[in-house]
Design a protein around this nucleic acid. Structure first.
Length: 587
RNA sequence: GCCCUCGUAGCUCAGGGGAUAGAGCACCGGCCUCCUAAGCCGGGUGUCGGAGGUUCGAAUCCUCCCGAGGGCGCCA
């Protein structure tokens, strides 16, 4: 059980003994650390219903809890705040309990089958900066929920079924009309080899897109090709399969470099066979209706005070579109994967789309009330000028080049400050790589999920301040100390009651772990983890400065400190794992 | 036009109805015969966009206004 929970239980019981609601007993970390470690504000809101003054109530509560051996001091402050400070023995005992429990004080959860839908890369398009946020936020949310004990999988959910596919087909046909994919009379097996490499495909994509913008005729042909692809025209399917295969290989490589891993490589196309029966059923059941030639589901209710446009189930030419696929995908995930909770980490600008899809899923009964559907939208990455991130030449920057920049800049900074100078060059490169990745990830994850932020590589890779490199450095110092301890045959011992203020502060910081995890999971907000990881390392650095662990004469204390450092290293390891950040052994 | 999000220190950003609103950077000054100085310590910063309201208490909740960004049926 977490320390906060223990204290809340204690104080709640006191409120109950006074005939007041237990909820007044909520204890939080003190806002005024110089006054106390924890506080309870419950006496203030309790005053009115109790018909008593807040300070009177606070005094009665204090009288109840004062005898508890954990409480070092309990006092009234201001209008009726209850300030609590624990005994050093209680702090040590609590920390020992957490270490023995092995779960960082985290309470167990009722495991749920959760799917996080986060990547959303498109076939034929290289990953660019815009893919960074959903990828690392989604990965972090997945790891966070998994760490809590849920059964979580990630689905990359490829963009592989839309109009761009038709545009690609038309473009390839214009360039290589001799290929068998376009010959409707062709009956033999199609070639195993893709007619295009990923590099060619990535060049063809923007050209195709541009052509359809400039030429309405080409756009029309692309629309037809898309429809025929969806309807199963064999040549188109075969060609599309090549596009898909070469793209997935490239995309996988990109996500590997980023340290992002998906359990499912599903895409929009996977549920194609479900579409016709689903549409038929929705029409038969009266949920879908025709409107201007298209098929729609109305999702607005009488309670709405704003206009929610209907969800379009099928275009007037009969083709399906992303609303249809998303709806069918929800059905598929529930029915064939047993998913009860879906979290979409997708650009927040798509919130209306998800609102429509989720409403449609509810209305039609595809998702029952027990199913959680949530759009955990992410903001965008902007360049130093506050506008969408671009290369110097105005193009969109690829993810790969961004990561290369991060590693290169990290190495430059190591060279400039003569860091890790004696290490083999191979290790230095590996460190620079990890530092660069940590810089980018921490820089991103420390911002609130929904906010747009300014990407500043120089700031993110800085060795000073609240950055990824700072976290890694702290981790490395802990690892190094623990190695030295092992070399001296000093085993981690029982945590001793703290005597120094930074030591006490570190113990208190560690005790916050469960609440931070729970809060972050509840809000799907990795920035809480990032912030806490920073605070924890900062607390450790202050402890490290004051408490000279390995030269400590008191052997019991020395062993206890090693135990505390091991605990801290363990906690930080979990946090980095959740953030998806990897640390080197030394740097 | 309607809807959504945002507006907090010079800059970049945190902030769960609670006390005196925080961090990092930047700027100035200290600390290495000692476990990694990529570290630590000290120094000052605010009409929390504005105005009302709810509340014992509002950066936080509600209303209006100003400013920025985004979205709004057959693209994804």
């Amino acid at each position: 059980m977490s320390l906060i929970t223990e204290l809340t239980d204690l104080v709640s019981q006191a409120f109950v003994a006074l005939g007041l609601d237990a909820s007044y007993g909520e204890v939080v970390v003190s806002q005024r650390p110089e006054l106390a470690q924890f506080q309870c504000n419950g006496a203030l809101p309790a005053a009115k219903p109790a018909g008593r003054s807040p300070r009177d109530i606070a005094q009665d509560v204090i009288d109840q809890i004062d005898q508890d051996e954990r409480i070092g001091s309990a006092s009234i402050a201001g209008p009726g705040f209850i300030n609590l400070t624990l005994t050093d023995a209680a702090l040590a005992a609590y920390t020992e309990g957490v270490i023995a429990g092995g779960r960082m004080g985290l309470r167990g959860v009722e495991p749920r089958s959760i799917l996080v839908d986060y990547g959303g890369p498109n076939v034929a398009k290289p990953l660019h900066v815009g893919h960074l946020r959903p990828a690392i936020i989604g990965e972090s949310i997945k790891r966070l929920l998994r760490f809590q004990g849920h059964d979580v999988i990630g689905d990359v959910h490829l963009g592989d079924w839309g109009t761009p596919m038709g545009q690609l087909i038309v473009e390839v046909e214009a360039r290589m009309p001799e290929l068998p994919y376009f010959d409707e009379g062709f009956s033999g097996p199609y070639p195993d080899e893709s007619p295009v490499t990923i590099d060619e495909l990535e060049e063809i994509y923007p050209a195709a897109s541009q052509r359809c913008k400039d030429d309405p005729d080409a756009a029309e042909r692309a629309r037809r090709a898309t429809l025929q692809l969806q309807n199963g025209r064999p040549g188109y399917r075969a060609l599309w399969q090549h596009f898909r295969n070469v793209s997935i290989a490239a995309i996988k490589e990109n996500y590997d470099e980023l340290g992002v891993e998906f359990e499912l490589w599903h895409g929009e196309s996977d549920i194609n066979d479900l579409l016709a029966p689903l549409i038929k059923k929705l029409v038969a059941d009266g949920y879908a209706e025709e409107s201007d030639g298209s098929l729609i589901i109305r999702v607005q209710t009488e309670d709405d005070n704003r206009d929610i446009p209907p969800l379009i189930l099928a275009k007037s030419d009969g083709a399906t579109l992303y609303s249809t696929w998303d709806l069918a995908t929800i059905q598929d995930r529930i029915e064939s994967l047993g998913i009860v909770e879906m979290i979409y980490v997708v650009d927040i600008r798509q919130s209306l789309h998800f609102e429509q899809v989720f409403r449609a899923a509810r209305i039609t009964g595809i998702a029952g009330p027990e199913i959680v559907l949530e759009h955990a939208g992410n903001g965008t990455v902007n360049g130093p000028n506050g506008k969408p991130f671009q290369t110097r030449t105005g193009g969109v920057k690829t993810l790969r080049s961004m990561l290369e920049d991060a590693a290169a800049l990290s190495l430059d900074k190591m060279d400039a400050r003569d860091l890790a100078a004696g290490y083999p060059q191979e290790e230095r490169l590996s460190i620079a790589h990890m530092v660069g990745l940590a810089a980018v990830k921490f820089g991103d994850l420390s911002n609130h999920r929904e906010s747009n932020y300014i990407f500043d590589m120089d700031r993110f890779t800085s060795f000073d301040g609240k950055t990824g490199p700072y976290l890694l450095y702290g981790t490395v110092r802990m690892s190094s100390l623990l190695r030295n301890a092992a070399d001296l045959s000093v085993d981690p011992g029982a945590v001793v009651p703290p005597t120094y203020e930074p030591e006490r502060a570190l113990i208190l910081e560690l005790a916050r772990f469960p609440e931070v995890i729970e809060r972050a999971a509840e809000l799907r907000a990795p920035n809480y983890i990032a912030e806490y990881a920073y605070e924890l390392v900062a607390s450790y650095n202050r402890f490290y400065e004051v408490c000279h662990v390995l030269t400590e004469d008191d052997l019991g204390r020395r062993a206890g400190w090693v135990g505390l450092v091991a605990h801290t290293r363990n906690a930080l390891g979990h946090l980095l794992e959740v953030l998806g950040i990897e640390a080197p052994e030394r740097m």
